[in-house]
Write a protein that binds this DNA or RNA. Structure first.
Length: 186
DNA sequence: CTATTGATGTTCT
DNA sequence: GAACATCAATAGA
């Protein structure tokens, strides 16, 4: 996984990441849920131009953009250049499951350890010390998918502006999605 | 199953 | 002050 992978259209990158395996210091799994945000998008942190928090979004493609949300949690994005980024919302744990379990306070079924952006950052040990870090170097490691998996699209979660734009991408039926109830599963 | 609420830091207006 | 790309616990149907 090189930097050119991330320097493409943000929706293309968001779809290309489904099925890819990401580990941080050897802990991680297969990405099953992403969301795309770009500079012309009212829901994006970059919509109002560069600021203190979103500086990484305006840097080169292929860097991490990590921010604190609701005062309690972190969210991990990959930058695609020009104010665009992909939010990594969920992955299916494959590596370092016991480490993740130890980091997460409450006991969870394995499939739910990284089922949501805040949970994922907690389980992988992501915080703002990784903000702006290059993705093609340790502690990040990637394993590309063998074949293109099925991908479903739907509206993004937890936003108020541009709430109808279908830029959330999932591996259909995965038990590790951030919304797993039958009524809200894509 | 759904709906609601409390916890809590940073950024922007 | 208000808003916020969330989570876990709780109560009710």
């Amino acid at each position: 996984m090189n930097r050119a992978f991330f320097a493409r259209d943000v929706v293309t990158v968001a779809r290309a990441l489904i099925g890819v395996t990401l580990t941080i210091d050897g802990v991680g799994g297969t990405i099953v849920e992403t969301e795309a945000y770009d500079a012309g998008d009212p829901a994006s942190h970059s919509f109002s131009g560069p600021g203190v928090r979103n500086a990484a979004m305006f840097g080169p493609a292929g860097a991490a953009y990590v921010y604190r949300i609701y005062g309690l949690h972190h969210c991990l994005n990959v930058t695609c250049g020009d104010g665009a980024a992909v939010l990594i919302r969920a992955l299916a744990p494959t590596n370092g499951v016991e480490v993740m379990r130890a980091r997460r306070a409450t006991m969870q079924p394995e499939a739910l350890l990284c089922a949501g952006p805040g949970r994922l950052c907690k389980a992988l040990g992501v915080d703002r010390s990784l903000n702006g870090a290059p993705l093609d170097a340790p502690p990040f490691a990637w394993r590309e998918r063998v074949a293109e998996p099925p991908i479903a699209a739907g509206p993004r979660i937890g936003i108020t502006r541009a709430a109808d734009v279908p830029w959330r991408f999932v591996l259909p039926g995965s038990p590790s999605l951030s919304r797993t109830t039958p009524s809200s599963r894509i």
